[in-house]
Design a protein around this nucleic acid. Structure first.
Length: 652
RNA sequence: GCUGCUGUAGCUCAGUCGGUAGAGCGCGUCCUUGGUAAGGACGAGGUCAUGGGUCCGAAUCCCAUCAGCAGCUCCA
């Protein structure tokens, strides 16, 4: 006798082994038809999986309305896609076909190089399979039989996987759908007809089991939804992301440039982008100073010996620009990080516990030779400016310093309208021996970091054991932009390595008049100005809030007759510290407004006969439109107030 | 770095079977002087990414290099 406990607290009892589908049918025929899969004691099952005949089971049926069902359906859709590809092309070797956020992919080897030109054909074949509505049948086989089966099917990757990846399994499961048989854990939808609207999105390379030394495969990405409407909304979201792409907007709005003649992954900030950056820098420095950081400036190169001491050279030799060899044999490295320079500042004189915490900050330009395939726009580059600072403090000060870093990050992100972010705490794996420093210090530090995060009531706090750097625990900031995409921004890292005797051997004199070792905190809460600006471009879709806008206001004249007065107005605003330009072309007013609108200028100052006569301007808001006539001084005050407040209005 | 795709005017892109280069926007000049998202006319702009090759002839076909895009792998 098995007791099936349903979510509505009803309990069904069976004396035989039943399938979720049988249970659904006992509840009602409509439910049976709608059932996609089930969850039994937290485990996702196919609708035709036999349940045990004994015990109690917390049981839940999944229909289209349940998010887990969508995942099951996408997995089935991946199978249908693979089946379609096998029907269309010869010699297909199946690898893996899992689901991912919003979709799925399938990796396979196929001699025919797939391109998006093949998509309509594959989609048509998939549609045919869905229409045929063939059932997904689960088959369990002992390992030996399964290996034989896959060998017969010529699926050598699957054979390898059973032999290596599934070596500990007694039996393995297959799913059959017509002529298509695939090694798969499942579950799947009952039949292909349950698959809703789908679309293939892209094709890319992938390696067998993610290992670059192994076989290169082709990966087909697709998305699937129960409703056509959901699919369309998803495709629209992808379009929206494309429209906001900082690489496109950066070119369109003349914010930055990447020139092959200068080098791949090296950003040239154009005047408008540089203006945004200067505002951000001013804002960040202002906060740092308020919070007791001291600015320093240090060079972008240093002697290789310095990086040998830090241990980063030659460990990261592959991802650094090679050293510069001098005629006297000295060698210099383009710095890949700022910490060694800051450490030398710490070491420039004896330090007392009274000096701690010492916080030194620099927007430090560093260079790393990222792999060519890794480079993208402003977000993955070879030269970037970290909003870096190093805090040298005592063990006891770690928690407060960490709290300060979180607090500053929170403040700056919220100023930019990024209120949705999470912190990922990475701790060591106590079983591993790859970590440096005293385990007792680690325990203390990890507990301190966690309690700070709990105190601050951070939502979505995650703790990842085994993800810490070898030299200390760290916290990473992941912010969501206004369309819900996540950006890994910066990091706060405790460091027991660089201050240690093997490295720089840092000291301070304690109250006991004895030398002690400080703890070092590396923190770059926004990562880099390049990456952060790239993210902001996408977050605001190029329409920056007034305080950041490269062009804050544009004077537009109704006719050239009013140019003289308008130029005086423009100059008055400029002298008041506003970034203003004037459009005096012999164009119609509608055209000038349209151009300013498309250039995402926050305010337009429309000037015609009436304004000239009254000494006013007609203010036009990019978002709200015509605000009517105002005295020039009123406009200046209004804009300056909005700037001082660092107000963010609707992102787009 | 690997796999696939792409590279044509400042920008977005078209260019058939290999026969010697096109559009829209932008830009310039002139006309128009206007009231809140496109006034009109004319004009200038290209070593078809770079370097080789095949061919009577290459933007077009082949190879290499560089760069970009989608992924994969890596990331102090």
């Amino acid at each position: 006798m098995v007791k099936i406990k349903l979510p509505d607290r009803n309990v069904l009892e069976y004396s035989r082994r039943v399938r979720p589908l049988d249970i659904a049918a006992d509840i009602g025929p409509r439910l049976a038809k709608a059932t996609i899969a089930a969850v039994a004691d937290g485990q996702l099952l196919g609708a035709d999986t036999l349940l045990p005949s004994e015990g109690e089971i917390e049981f839940r049926l999944l229909t289209k309305k349940d998010p887990e069902a969508l995942d099951v359906m996408r997995h089935s859709c991946a199978h249908v896609m693979a089946r379609a590809v096998m029907r269309l092309f010869d010699g297909v070797q199946l690898a893996f076909g899992p689901t991912v956020d919003n979709g799925f992919y399938y990796d396979f080897y196929c001699e025919h190089p797939l391109s998006d030109a093949d998509f309509p054909k594959i989609e048509a074949e998939m549609a045919r399979i869905v229409k045929e509505d063939g059932p997904f049948e689960r088959i369990e086989e002992p390992r030996e039989k399964a290996i034989q089966l896959c060998t017969e099917l010529g699926q050598t990757l699957k054979v390898e996987h059973i032999q290596e990846g599934l070596a500990d399994q007694e039996t393995v499961s297959f799913y059959r759908q017509g002529e298509f048989l695939d090694l798969c854990r499942g579950p799947h939808v009952p039949s292909a007809g349950a698959i809703g609207a789908f679309k293939l999105l892209s094709v890319a390379g992938a390696y067998w089991k993610g290992d670059a030394s192994k076989q290169q495969l082709q990966r087909l990405y697709g998305t699937a939804w129960f409703d056509k409407k959901d699919l369309e909304e998803h495709l629209q979201r992808l379009e929206e992301a494309k429209r906001r792409d900082h690489r496109v907007l950066g070119k369109q709005l003349e914010l930055f440039l990447i020139d092959p003649e200068v080098g791949s992954g090296l950003v040239l900030w154009l005047p408008k982008g540089a203006t945004i950056r200067r505002e951000l820098e001013g804002f960040i420095y202002g906060e740092l100073i308020k919070r007791g950081y001291q600015p320093v400036y240090t060079p972008t190169i240093g002697r290789v010996h310095l990086y040998e001491t830090s241990g980063h050279y030659p460990y990261y030799a592959d991802s650094q620009f090679p050293p510069i060899e001098m005629s006297d044999g000295d060698r210099y490295l383009l710095r890949p990080m700022n910490c060694p320079h800051h450490i030398r500042i710490y070491q420039s004189k004896p330090r007392s516990y009274r000096d701690l915490p010492l916080r030194i900050a620099e927007l430090g330009l560093v260079h790393r030779f990222e792999q060519s395939g890794e480079i993208s726009g402003m977000t993955r580059v070879r030269g970037f400016t970290q909003d870096d600072a190093h805090i040298f403090c005592t063990e006891d000060q770690v928690a407060d310093e960490f709290r300060g870093c979180l607090d500053m990050t929170q403040f700056v992100l919220s100023t930019l309208g990024l209120n949705d972010y999470r912190v990922r705490l990475s701790f060591r794996d106590p079983k591993s021996d790859k970590y440096v420093g005293d385990p007792a210090n680690w325990d203390k530090a990890e507990a301190a970091l966690e309690s700070v995060c709990r105190d601050l009531g951070l939502p979505n706090l995650e703790i990842e054991v085994g993800e810490a750097a070898f030299y200390g625990p760290k916290a990473d900031f992941v912010a969501s932009d206004c369309i819900g995409r996540e950006w890994q921004l910066g990091t706060v890292q405790l460091d027991y390595n660089l201050p240690g005797p093997e490295r720089f051997n840092l000291e301070y004199i304690g109250p006991d008049n004895q030398p002690h070792r400080p703890v070092m905190i590396h923190r770059a809460p926004f990562g880099s100005l390049e990456r952060f600006t790239g993210m902001l471009i996408e977050h605001f879709a190029g329409a920056f809030p007034l305080w950041l806008a490269p062009e804050q206001a544009r004077v537009v004249v109704v006719s050239q007759k009013f140019e003289e007065y308008a130029r005086r107005v423009e100059q008055t605003l400029r002298e008041a510290g506003l970034r203003v330009s004037g459009d005096y072309r012999p164009e119609k007013i509608g055209a000038k407004i349209r151009d300013a609108q498309l250039a995402l200028v926050p305010y337009m100052l429309v000037i015609g006969g009436r304004e000239q006569e009254n000494g006013t301007v007609a203010l036009r808001d990019r978002i709200d439109g015509d605000l009517g006539a105002l005295a020039v001084q009123e406009v200046i005050e209004k804009l300056k107030a909005e700037i001082a407040e660092r107000k963010t209005r609707q992102a787009n």
